[in-house]
Design a protein around this nucleic acid. Sequence first.
DNA 1: TTCCGACAGTGGGGTCGCAAT
DNA 2: ATTGCGACCCCACTATCGGAA
Length: 513
Amino acid sequence: MLLAELVTVTDAVAATSSRLAKVAALAELLRRLEPDEIGPAVGFLLASPRQGRLGVGWRSVTSLDVAHAAEPGLTVLDVDAALDRLAAAEGPGSASARAAELKGLAGRATSGEWDLLTRIMLGELRTGALEGVLLDAVAQAADRAAPSVRRAAMLSGDVGETARLALTGTAAELGAVGLQVGRPVMPMLASTASSVADALATIGGPQARGAASIEFKLDGARIQVHRDGDEVHVYTRSLADITHRVPEIVEAARQLPAERVILDGETLTLDEDGAPRPFQDTMARFGSESEVAALLRPWFFDILHLDGRDLIDEPLSTRLEALARVAGAARMPGIVTDDVAQAEAFSRDALAAGHEGVMVKALDAPYAAGRRGKSWLKVKPVLTYDLVVLAVEPGSGRRTGLLSNLHLGALDPMGEFGEPGGFVMVGKTFKGLTDATLRWQTEHFPTIETRRSAYALHVRPVTVVEIAIDGVQRSSRYPGGIALRFARVKGYRPDKRADEADTIQTLRALLRG
DNA sequence: TTCCGACAGTGGGGTCGCAAT
DNA sequence: ATTGCGACCCCACTATCGGAA
């Protein structure tokens, strides 16, 4: 198949807001693919090529200057082969080898094809169709039930292979795709609740008769651990195999009293007193190839398979019983209760121990791989501060033409970081903005503009905005030495003056809890 | 007819390894 | 030795479509 056909279809998909129309257009395309084109094409449609990391980012794409082809000629398999060569380049000279490969590809592509190719390589198509819509399209094209396609994709962790199987295999083969020890599963995800009481009410239902599992929520990295005898693999949330980086977790898995097991959990590093280290310190270890002093410790909160028995379709209550037999000291602290006061007390314990908060989970729910449903709710404390807008950046995509991303400053009353009474930038945010707020920003900020830079409109520091954050972290980027974590807008505060804003000292005090 | 679950988009912070400088 | 890039860990929130109620 020609790449140009994907251009036509993805343009059509982007042009309609109807998901049914997107699914129909994608299904029609999928039906026309040859079997060996399905894997590559699905990778393109998800902007997640099957080759994985290509070593190609925004910089390498935009620094190219090539004349494009006048007529389409590239096929899906041509592009797949070019991406193979890009992914294979490493070592000295690899950057120029990749640049040459990119240049060759760009020269063979029409400008429309190159536009699609760059979006594929940069990982964002923005056509309003990703995994969910594409899986529906696969089901439609293959004439299979959507849930069976989705389940196969989630349990195999591989949408491309699932599409190939659905389109070329039998329904029975698709239905036979299941858990396999050693092959990662898309992890189950959580929604957010505003309080433990709310979470318990949601989980327990209107009558709140059902109890829930309340568990510590740790500020670390998600891990999925597979053990088959002495063979152990550790995967990240995005299913990357990081076994070689975490020997201490491999060793811990080998100590478990089970032969074949799949566990879901979280890992982080502790300080000498056994208190959790900041997320940044955990990431320094988790992201590193080399062994350093700080050891990662695993905590397991779920079990998907135990010694020949799949548990994903069992209720959480059954899975927790199995986990209790296997995990020992590596079991995530948790209680089962229907009592709000008891759950809240447990949440306070989690926070007192230095953790993020708690998870509240429905005991009757199966392990819904790849789903972000209401069966798991996270509850974390939210802090709010009044900060001052220093600049605004124009938005992109559906925020094109609107002023979107805010630069936020804290008051510096003593002039520790500049003029007394000035402001120190502590982060940015684009979150929490409604369409109405975006329109208001776009009208308001030009009226107090002081200067424009390449990326932002700088304004007089007079606009106070209430910002919610989860906390602060060390920063080498910002002059105050801290950055906001997960900042989002709660609302503008026209009733407040800038000199009433919260101070950099107040925010810095959060660093040490 | 209204409600709500699921999805996609819009970007934020930091950390690492690696190649180029 | 330093710098810039790419990859990837954490993440909140709003708008929208279309099936469920």
